[in-house]
Nucleic acid binder design. Sequence first.
DNA 1: CATGAGCGT
Length: 371
Amino acid sequence: MDIEAKYRMASLYVGDLHADVTEDLLFKKFSAAGPVLSIRICRDVVTRRSLGYAYVNFLKLADAQKALDTMNFDMMKGKSIRLMWSQRDAHLRKSGVGNVFIKNLDKSIDNKILHEHFSAFGKILSSKVMSDDQGSKGYGFVHFQNQSAADRAIEEMNGKLFKDCRVFVGRFKNRKDREAELRSKASSAFTNVYIKNFGDHMDDERLKEVFSKYGNTLSVKVMTDSSGKSKGFGFVSFDSHEAAKKAVEEMNGKAINGQPIFVGRAQKKGERQAELKQMFEQMKKERIRGRQGVKLYIKNLDDTIDDEKLRKEFSSFGSISRVKVMQEEGQSKGFGLVCFSSSEEATKAMAEMNGRILGSKALNIALAQRH
DNA sequence: CATGAGCGT
């Protein structure tokens, strides 16, 4: 077996690290489990700030196992560290297979208790109780190695008492899936309708008249300012989803007081705010893109690559407004920037060039962070 | 009420 393979076998990933945790501190801590070959805290290439995770490579597999069994969730600089086997295959970590979400956790349940309890159902890759400076946030995650273990945990624990709380245990859903699910649930059952753009000359009475033909209304409200003047929008709550749906279908875009009104499902404040925020951010992104193009951040550059060579390699993908290989005392720092005038060009360049060997090293390309 | 983070020499 080559050295690298040996490293991988006895290599632990250490996550959730406080930014002030040093290699030295990690070395001292993990040496208690057995001889440590090397430690690496991953840092931002530019700022050298800790990215909050590290690798600890043990000489012996058994020592790594011992560290995993005895040191997971230990506190360092006031933060609970999270240990996993180093797993470089991103797919295995991100597919969501075996990942379980738990809510309504008793506040007294911490990382160690959660891990201990759920390990009865199978091997755990990673687990965590979400917390802030006030302590547990009452929910967390257990990522099992197999879906079958996750299914057992859900089957055995969902709806059961865990300490003093009845917990929900279910499959983990990522944010996108969850939002889509919530939206579809809301839109398939809504009874409350939001109406806007009907101007100043509207009151509850008249709004009720307009919308009553779609069904029984439970409440009708034109929102007003402090002087009692209409703010141009309001709500009609129906007693059935069918009536609300029909009102939206037939009234949206119809003219009232000479202008087309908007009629749609009434959203909760948070939902509306999230939607606006997303729209705003999308617009901002497009504005910035239009003005200054898209920057690609090129890492793992061979020392022999300079500005001119880098430009030449990327020039076929579109118009490049700027190229820069970062240098120190005339020596490449191994990373740089290429700025394209459109996102299409940048995307194409990234797709084609990521992993491409230049000189003796494989390029690592990412979108540069804006600030 | 609640759906992380995220992998190098």
